[in-house]
């Protein structure tokens, strides 16, 4: 039996890439946690998925012109993500199509276009990097980028908190008292795109949204108010990063999927045992109801 210290801590002390992976997922978790919770509360959980895919062609064009240059890919990803968010919104407002339907069309086109562009200019290894990221190869630039995105996210969320929450609960009331709803919504969409671009570098375009939505869904089973939900979501994401990296180290699993699978494990546990609506909860409930 190995010593728990060797098992749980040593990999991060001995190997720099493990430390970087841990710092990267920690920084990501702080931003994606609250963003994911808000997406879920606005019933936009799948929107995050769609946005994540729509980043791909932009990042791919950046890659085509300047190789695996982080700035070119980041700028490309941001531009493509914003463009799809805005276009989908415009189509939804000007045609009969609902926002989810128009987004579905745009993100599928984006995904196909992105894969085509990467394949034109690179190898299958590049494509895998694009789709699944490389959480064990985070360099200083990427870590700074992720930390910067997280800092901006927390600042913007603090500023736009009130209209964002109000727009979830009672959008008609917000419209009647303030015009802040639309700009707050746009700022929030921008945060979604930015956080997904940050996550894209670590986890790739297909899994970036995993660290955003799975912890948020987990949180719904443990907390009744928004602040607590965000706390649970961030903690889940951080723990998933840590456990996932360890699992990948010891069992030789691919790191990105291991992180998201760990989050998935938390999800199944929460689904069964979560105090707020977990499936097995009724079995543990005290059988007598209250008097009033």
């Amino acid at each position: 039996m190995t010593n728990p210290y060797d098992f749980l801590v040593s990999p991060f002390i001995e190997f720099e890439f493990m430390r970087r992976g841990l710092v990267g997922t920690l920084a990501l978790a702080l931003g994606t946690g609250p963003v994911g919770v808000i997406l879920m509360l606005r019933r936009m959980s799948l929107m995050g998925d769609a946005m994540a895919h729509s980043i791909l062609p932009g990042a791919a064009v950046g890659f085509l012109f300047s190789g695996l240059n982080i700035f070119a890919m980041t700028v490309g990803g941001l531009v493509a993500g914003f463009a799809v968010a805005v276009l989908a919104g415009v189509v939804a407002r000007t045609t009969e199509l609902k926002e989810d339907a128009s987004l579905a069309a745009f993100f599928l086109i984006s995904l196909a276009l992105g894969v085509t562009i990467v394949s034109m200019g690179g190898t299958n290894v590049d494509l895998l990097h694009f789709l699944f990221g490389s959480v064990l190869a985070l360099d200083d630039q990427i870590l700074l980028l992720i930390a910067g995105i997280t800092s901006i996210s927390l600042a913007v969320l603090a500023l736009a908190w009130r209209p964002l929450m109000l727009e979830c609960v009672d959008p008609a009331f917000l419209r009647s008292v303030s015009r802040a709803g639309a700009p707050a919504h746009m700022a929030f969409l921008a945060l979604v795109v930015m956080n997904l671009v940050g996550g894209f570098h670590a986890l790739g375009t297909l899994l970036a949204v995993g660290l955003m939505m799975v912890p948020a869904v987990v949180a719904r089973f443990w907390a009744r108010d928004v602040t607590a939900m965000i706390g649970v979501a961030v903690a889940t994401a951080v723990l998933s990063g840590y456990c996932g990296l360890l699992a990948s180290f010891h069992a030789g699993l691919p790191a990105g999927p291991a992180v998201i699978l760990t989050a998935g494990g938390f999800y199944f546990v929460s689904l069964l045992f979560g105090p707020v609506g977990g499936l097995l909860r009724p079995l543990f409930r005290r059988s007598r109801h209250l008097e009033a």
Binding site: L159, M165, V169, D170, A172, F173, D225, V226
Partner: peptide, 29 residues
């Protein structure tokens, strides 16, 4: 409105919901 457009599943309590009425004096921040 006749049918208030309120998301009753949103995790917010009565106090916070009522406090929104103060928007005119608190504004955004």
């Amino acid at each position: 409105p006749q049918v208030a457009d309120v998301d009753r599943t949103f995790p917010i309590n009565v106090y916070d919901m009522v406090s929104m009425g103060l928007w005119k004096c608190t504004g955004l921040f």
